[in-house]
Design a protein around this nucleic acid. Sequence first.
DNA 1: AGGTGAGCATTTTTT
DNA 2: ATGCTCACCT
Length: 668
Amino acid sequence: MSKFRLFDLNPEQQAAASHTGGPLLILAGAGTGKTRVITSRIAWLVAQGASPGAILAVTFTNKAAREMKERVAGMVDSADAKEITLSTFHSLCVRILRADATHLGYKSNFSIFDDGDQSGLIKKIINRVTSADESMDPGVARALISKAKNNAWRPPDDDETVIGAVYRRYDQELRAQNAMDFDDLLVNAVRLLGEFPEVRARWRTRFRHLLVDEFQDTNRLQLELVSLLAAGDPPDVCVVGDDDQSIYGWRGAEVANILEFERHFPNPRVVKLEQNYRSTDIILQSANRVIRNNTARRGKNLWSPKDGGEPVHVIAVPTDVDEAEFVTGEIAAKRDLGSLTWESFAILYRMNAQSRPFEENLRRLRIPYRLIGGKSFYDRREVKDVTAYMACLLNPNDDAALLRIINTPPRGIGATTVDLAFERSIKSEKTLFEEMTSSDFLDYVPTRAANAIRAFSDTLSAARIRVTTPGSDAAHILTEILTECAYFDDLRRSCKTTQEGDSREGNVRELLTSLSEHQKKHRDGLRSFLDDLALDRDREGKDENAKGVTLITLHAAKGLEFPHVFLVGAEDGLLPHERSKAEDTVDEERRLFYVGVTRAMETLTITHCRHRKRFGTPTYCEPSPFLTEMEGTGVERRNFEDIVNEPMDDAQFDNQFARMRELLGGTD
DNA sequence: AGGTGAGCATTTTTT
DNA sequence: ATGCTCACCT
């Protein structure tokens, strides 16, 4: 029945997959078959007679969860596979909270605030709280509030400090609106399990076998959540991670969680996976030489049986313009010479802003590319609008959603009325919806506004009743509302071109179609659709399907691999970033560099510019200190000028010629 | 109510 | 250089 075989794994992987008797820490270096080990362990547990329903595997991204689900499905009985819980931290928390958030004073239909909702609310509060002479950067406030939540600091009871006042109001506001931000999902799930023994007992009984992926990226709350769920003595907790790939410290990830694993889960079995199945040994040894300069680490030495291969090339180029030209030229030449696909190349950089010159050159050479990162489908105005309509239907007290659609499209409830309602809602400690629909308010505002509000609230209420009726077709109801209020007409009117209008309307239709699809599969369809929308935004599909050379930041490249990697902008000040030098987090930058190097399977080319345009003006750049650290066997440093002046060999010449003819021929 | 221009900052972004 | 926000204007 079980379609996996333990002996397909190497000895360390086997030991990790089949360990019993307490906590297990798997230190899985880049490309050492980490996912394989987790999925094998799951299959092994099932084969040993563990109840599949008692297995919980937690990942950070939905993508990882989906991939793992797929692989597990190929290894165990399909009935068993369905029972296994494989989810992200945040989805797990939502699941826990939807069941019992009432204990914490939330209604179980609470809304989830995304980054946009969160910033919006914080900005509003700052405007309220601060007077003309003081000011506060919303970004800073957000970071501080997040930090506070991650450290379990409750909001203060007074307005002693500005940030305290903002945090206090923010917390009050969210509660009043029956909403949680991403941090709250963790905070509240932890509180629920921590403060309510019967809830804790229920989940502990449910999950006996815990697996956590990317453990180096967990923050304090996530560790706490795992600890609260871990039952048994000793608990069956298996965490997998790589301290050398911890690159999200700035987002609250605690490397200490993995470095001091023993403190949280005593006497663990520790297994190191060091055999790499991805890269040539030359690349791995170069990576090893760099990362060993970090002090706080478990210590690992990756090796590969793949001998030989090309040396790592480090190229000094005069400017960022030359860099882009060189790299794209190399890609074109390499592809032709080795008849490779464009997909086998990736350009890795520290900042999104660096992608521009590469894009321009790729376009010029007619090379297809996919740019990872950038604005998401779900951040489009029209998608957010319609999502807000959905959110309002389920939770009218979601002020952020209501604010967004209250006068979109214009329905006679103007800014003056809304501002007034908002002010009064704060004083009356009501939600915006409650305030606006109170007879007090309706009597106070001009008749026209009052009528408009009544009409809108009637529409919403009627729709809400229909939507919450079991078996209703939410997508259909939404379409009716949008048509009734002429949303699409308004949307098109606001677009400069018909094309843009088509595209935006298409986006909304797409959203409604996927809601309709979703509802066929899930009970409580609208609610879970919105949850997925808030928590699972990475299934763009658009970028994934695109073909071509990959342009991606070092952060986003973690977990990926490419046959041919170009790591660009390896300059002091960029990598390590100037800011990280000031903040004394160069170790994390070194890990970032290490992550970049270990993405490469066959060839790695690193470039650095002597001059780069920074903020519009050319600046002198030193090569990254990591390049000096990397120096050794198999690393060749060269100058752009020497390569350019080098005579072409015949094959190169032919290729160049063929390529030029292709371009001149005007291939569409 | 939407458009325009000055002013400003400018790393990374799994959820 | 460039993109974004906010304030002020049409």
